[in-house]
Design a protein around this nucleic acid. Structure first.
Lengths: 213, 213
DNA sequence: CCCTTGCTAGTCAAACTTGACTACCTGCCC
DNA sequence: GGGCAGGTAGTCAAGTTTGACTAGCAAGGG
């Protein structure tokens, strides 16, 4: 998950250091909905460099104060992994909203037809899962047998239905021509240029209410 | 999270060993919707014993084959922590469905009035969060400024709305007298007695479709 | 001119999670 | 009467995540 985000960020820059990635993720709001803390980001970069998904350039000291920095570039192998993760994020329904969010942020790296196909597969995935849950909790003995435990299943089913509905909406928007996908001309700029100010910076605004811990 | 589940399971038994906890969690379906693998469970037990939330009895070898086992009991401090976690799980909206699921499974350890109060707070929490997100993504420049990134926010808002709707339903069911809460007589048996067969055992049925990894 | 604030860039230990693995015993089929 | 399938109970190393910490430099106030 973190790998998907990091690969996506590095890829858009062509070449990036950790702090830049960190900033992009904040720009996307990822610090609010994913577990993308500094530690995880740097760890992911190093790990992926070790595994050959990224190439690490030993690089000059910072131009703007601070310690020297290492720049990374996505290798061919890393690109493959990136698309694999991206496709999976859009397709699979594992009720982890952060994975889908990451996929949404990066889906325009695919072409429109493929994005649509993946989302259709996502729909089928949700339906299948719904069927599995309802089988499990409405056994022939009738419901209620589970007492309040049944609420858990009811919650899952409700989530699945709501997720399906939303996905349907998205498919329609994309089919209707929304957004700019790969190979459709001027792409949407999803990263900050060097020195550009982040209009959505949250500063030290506290995390969204309801967050505990 | 895992701590909440483990504390809840041990508490219901009064005294339990790791394997028993593992079985209860399967009974609740937790292996499907939470990251409660054996390793995590045993780790949590040991950790919490070290921290004084559980008391570990050094105990006799198994009665039914297998290595000897350690039994645990929740301490007073552990009970406090348990209720703290439980209240938090029901109240806070951090879009992690597994936390809520755990809370639902254990909510009957509270009394009805408190459960209702917590769920009302959950509703407010969701609304507040929704407000925060919509502020963030419909700035005065108008929407669309974010391009496809806006879809992420739209997804959050949709999830929040759907979560609120479901919570409202649950509140009504509980207010209407559903389920048996603490202090209301014969509690629902949420654990398996020794030797009882799990009617919902999944055997080696594979995890729900759509699960990747 | 110096000193505090704040941004840049990153490290690190401790905690947690994962998935595969071990070892023991029972029942039962042949 | 052997052996193997399957349940019981748990360990362990490798990997990941967390949250707090470090250290360098710039800008600006007094």
């Amino acid at each position: 998950m973190i790998r998907l985000l990091v690969l996506g960020a590095v890829r858009q820059h062509g070449r990036a250091h950790g702090y830049q990635v960190r900033n992009d993720l904040e720009y996307w709001g990822a610090h609010e909905w994913s577990n993308a803390k500094p530690g995880s980001i740097y760890h992911a970069l190093k790990q992926m460099a070790k595994q050959g998904l990224l190439h690490a350039h030993e690089v000059a000291p910072s131009t703007a104060g601070g310690p020297p920095r290492t720049e990374y570039e996505v290798t061919e192998q890393g690109t493959e992994e990136y698309f694999r993760l991206l496709r999976e994020a859009l397709t699979s329904y594992d009720q982890k909203p952060d994975v889908l969010s990451a996929g949404l942020g990066l889906m325009v790296d695919l072409d429109r037809a493929e994005a649509l196909a993946l989302l259709e597969r996502r729909m089928r995935s949700i339906e299948e899962w719904r069927r599995a849950v309802t089988e499990y909790y409405v056994p022939e003995d009738g419901p209620g047998q589970l007492g309040h435990i049944g609420e858990i299943m009811d919650f899952w089913v409700h989530s699945a239905d709501s997720g399906a509905e939303w996905t349907r909406g998205l498919i329609e928007r994309i089919r209707g021509g929304a957004y700019t996908f790969a190979g459709e001309g001027e792409p949407f700029v999803g990263v900050l240029a060097d020195g550009e100010e982040n209009p959505f910076a949250t500063g030290d605004r506290e995390p969204h209410p309801g967050d505990a811990h």
